[in-house]
Design a binder for these strands. Sequence first.
DNA 1: TCCAGCACTC
Length: 650
Amino acid sequence: MVAISRHWSRTVLSLCNRGFHSQLQPQNFVPFSQQQLQRNFLESQLVSLLHGCSDFNQLRQVHANIIRMGLDQCCFVLTKFIRVLTKFMVPMDYPRLVFDQVRRPNPFIWTALIRGYSLLGPFSEAVVLYNCMRKEGTRPVSFIFSALFKACGATHDFNSGRQVHCQTISIGGFVSDLYVGNTLIDMYVKCGFLDYGRRVFDEMMDRDVISWTSLITAYAKNGAMEVAGELFDRLPDKDMVAWTAMVTGYAQNARPREALRLFERMRDAGVETDEVTLVGVISACAQLGAEKYARWIRDVAEHAGLGPTTNVVVGSALIDMYSKCGSVDEAYQVFEMMMEKNVYSYSAMIVGFAMHGKADAAMRLFYEMVKTETKPNRVTFIGVLTACSHAGLVEQGRNLFGSMQGIYGITPSADHYACMVDLLGRSGHLEEAYELVKTMEIEPHGGVWGALLGACRIHGNPDIAEIAASHLFELEPTGIGNYVLLSNIYASAGRWDDVSRVRKLIRKKGMKKNPACSWVEASNGVIHEFFAADMTHPKSKEIKQALEELLERLKLAGYKPNLSSVVYDLSDNEKEQLLMTHSEKLALVFGLLTTSAGSSIRIVKNLRICEDCHSFMLSASGVTRREIVVRDNMRFHHFRDGLCSCGDFW
DNA sequence: TCCAGCACTC
């Protein structure tokens, strides 16, 4: 019997598929020639050799064999070869060379090559080649389209993607292919045309959980959590990935509590947890900044066998979480126990040190990293530059910034300039900071001008502030913080007319001030929330009284209210009253009332801590003999015995 | 022979 030929088995298969079972009679098959059999045998031998390859050198040897056996025009074998090369992520020059030597490429080898480009890049080459293929009159096979849409998605090339999509419609049939449909949704979403993706989804004949999840993720990334949630509820068979997409969506949209609630529901539903799910939940815990949740999720991770020792992704997320929860020491413990460390782990740790004002540790780790195989990336530099900025290490920062391009091959981005402006401006080199902005080769973004404006606030420079603010008003017309900052700068300079001018502008634009808010964890792990001048908390009366008592004690110890922190034109007495309503002071007093003596108090604040609250905390940490940790939207302050980890420089 | 969720950024 003829048993080993692929042609034979293919013929049988296609006859079966078309319902011609009756033709499956031995007499209907022309026996293969001996030569053909020999060739088929060789081909299948080579293909199995290809699949057994474990490194690039072996692949080259098989290639040499293909040529030696005279199969250098055999599309069947070469297609497999190109696929394996792609799997090994061999740069596309090599597959291209192989392809270019084939005189009459068939649709499959075209597809393999195009797919290679769509996975490894240069992505734009995929569409170029596809057009060549069409010009030569080769009819595309359906699965070429998922490769093309992937490539267009990677380059955000909406026009090409749209064009190819229209062609699939005119060729007919392929749009109803589930895989093609899913990649098409993904392509439109990546190009920023969510509505087009939605339309494809709505028009698809059948959808699987992947189609739903693509769309859910897209809405979540757009901040449309309500739409995402609606889709999620309608999804009949939710799998781990779909659940994770929702959990992560809430975390990414700064809704950590909902993320945790959904994660609990997910576990109740008996869905498994993997590292991706965990990372989303860990990020939610990091946002809450509470020790209780940090401990809990660490246990969950260890329990699932996904602890930091063995899992680098979970480890890096945990480093970030512990840093943001105020436990930089614990973050470092995690870092040290990790068997594998990559650029994420190093960067997270460096950023963690920077946030806590441990500039020396950050720099040390950076130089340690440089000695390893792991190359620093743009985020790593954000970390070290921030560290310099928080510690006022101007010279070191200048050197690092200067070495980015030359030594590490990283072109400074606007974010890096923002760090430098922050460093220079904060340390009093306002003019130099402004000069740096003026000489930037790339367009400065809001972060750059924002850093300059912030520095003007510290050093009281309304003139440069006006310039920075005017750019900010254009770049971020709805950014209320910039207006508030400018008005504060005018207020500090006593320019009350300008203050009211800015206030009017705010009112005219219909903007509302972001309410200041602080959170503090009570001893039972429950988180309490305080807004500025908030009297809605059940214990408000006690808090107010305790605050007044504390104020008297602090004044005796030398604390003086910093009245210039108040941006309203009020009497000194009124200013002092107003300062006592700041949310972090309420949170502090609540913490003092509800936690046991000796334990530390952790406060998280949504805005930057003001100067008066900073000196209040300093004094309070000395008088009450408590450690106070405040996380504002920029960094951490550890107050102990009347001193702060930031060295009063922030 | 392809398709979904992913850690570090003032």
